[in-house]
């Protein structure tokens, strides 16, 4: 039996309160290893910025899932992997569960970074030494003393017939924006400055900044990456560009909304729903799709609809609405699944 299915069965055991310590230990170890894999694959050296090792972050992330209540149960874990979710994945493909698990772990990892954000203490002295060493070795940057300060200059080689635009000390913010735009987060110092030089060359920019300012820019770029950008590209085995994925996803959701709109319009024409109900279904579907992106459906379809139609009763829902909503949900799920499959096989 493949690894993910085994994990699923162990989760089922925990939900049913039918497990032994060994099962629990195996599950915890598997989750720690999954998170460590995610951290190590994406983090690079930027974790040196924090007073926490990747291992600490992984253990902390997992330990928050295994907080016990008075009955010895794990409320957080059981909320994320409730019976309904586990049952659904038991009959689904292993890839689907793998994707869900990674999504959940990634979300928890991101939360851990968020909780630790006030404690991130960059090892500035160490990073500064490394920046100095890199810049001294580099032929693209120049170091010169200006009184007490150590100035770093970069002059683009290709002049394009025009003098380059010069970024000075008071424009450090602009350089930070360039670093973020160029995706320099998560890079080790030598690679960071190599890529920065390429970016400056491309933008025809000259810099003249102190070493301290460059240090701050490096740290801020890594912090930003650590806190905000560690997410999206983990969703899939293949390392696909995150920006492409988000762009595509927005497009698919808009397309899906249009499809659902057309379907609901047909229901109105056939007098199966009232015209004013169309928007209610669309809003409920929007919420559901949002949940799919954020770890999965966590409540009943009735609850989604009830949010926008509080007066609806369970009986009325069962008799008149359920069939329609379930059909729309099934269609939407298949639509997104097909789009994702097609994108991944590109």
């Amino acid at each position: 039996m493949a690894g993910e299915k085994k994990l699923l069965l162990k989760l089922l055991g925990i939900i049913n309160n039918n497990y032994n310590e060994k099962d629990l230990e195996d599950l915890i170890l598997a989750l720690v290893n999954q998170i460590l894999l995610i951290i190590r694959r994406k983090s690079g050296l930027h974790f040196r910025l924090a007073s926490y090792e990747p291992r600490d972050i992984a253990l902390l992330t997992v330990s928050s899932l295994f907080v016990r209540n008075k009955q010895g149960r794990f409320p957080v874990l059981e909320r994320l992997f409730n019976w309904k979710i586990v049952e659904k994945f038991l009959s689904a493909s292993e890839t689907d569960f793998q994707r869900y698990l990674k999504n959940i772990l990634l979300r928890r990892l991101k939360q851990t970074f968020y909780y630790l954000s006030s404690e991130i203490r960059p090892e500035r002295a160490r990073i500064k030494r490394e920046i100095l060493y890199t810049l001294k070795k580099s032929s693209e940057y120049n170091l010169q003393k200006a009184g007490e300060k150590l100035l770093v200059t970069f002059i683009p080689q290709n002049s394009h017939g025009q003098p380059p635009e010069k970024l000075t000390e008071d424009q450090a913010d602009r350089l930070l924006a360039i670093c973020l735009d160029s995706g320099l987060g998560g890079l080790q110092v030598p690679k960071f400055f190599k890529k920065l030089a390429e970016s400056l060359e491309r933008n025809h920019l000259q810099i003249e900044l102190t070493i301290q300012q460059l240090l701050e820019i490096y740290v801020e770029t890594q912090k930003h990456y650590l806190l905000a950008e560690v997410s999206s590209s983990f969703h899939y085995k293949k390392q696909l560009p995150a920006s492409d994925f988000h762009e595509n996803l927005c497009g698919w959701i808009n397309e899906l909304r249009e499809r659902n709109n057309r379907l609901l319009h047909k229901y109105v024409q056939k007098n199966k729903i009232k015209p004013e109900e169309k928007e209610i279904y669309l809003k409920a579907l929007d919420d559901l799709i949002m949940d799919w992106q954020d770890g999965g459906q966590e409540k009943s379809l009735f609850s989604y609809l009830q949010n926008y139609q509080p007066e609806i009763s369970q009986e009325e829902y069962r008799q008149e609405k359920r069939k329609i909503l379930e059909y729309l949900v099934k269609n939407s799920r298949n639509f997104l699944k097909n789009k994702l499959d097609a994108w991944q096989t590109l």
Partner: peptide, 17 residues
């Protein structure tokens, strides 16, 4: 009386929900 959450801390730190 009914709700108690127990965590195993990591580096003296625990997160509760």
């Amino acid at each position: 009386e009914l709700e108690i959450l127990v965590a195993v801390p990591q580096k003296g730190l625990a997160i509760f929900e």
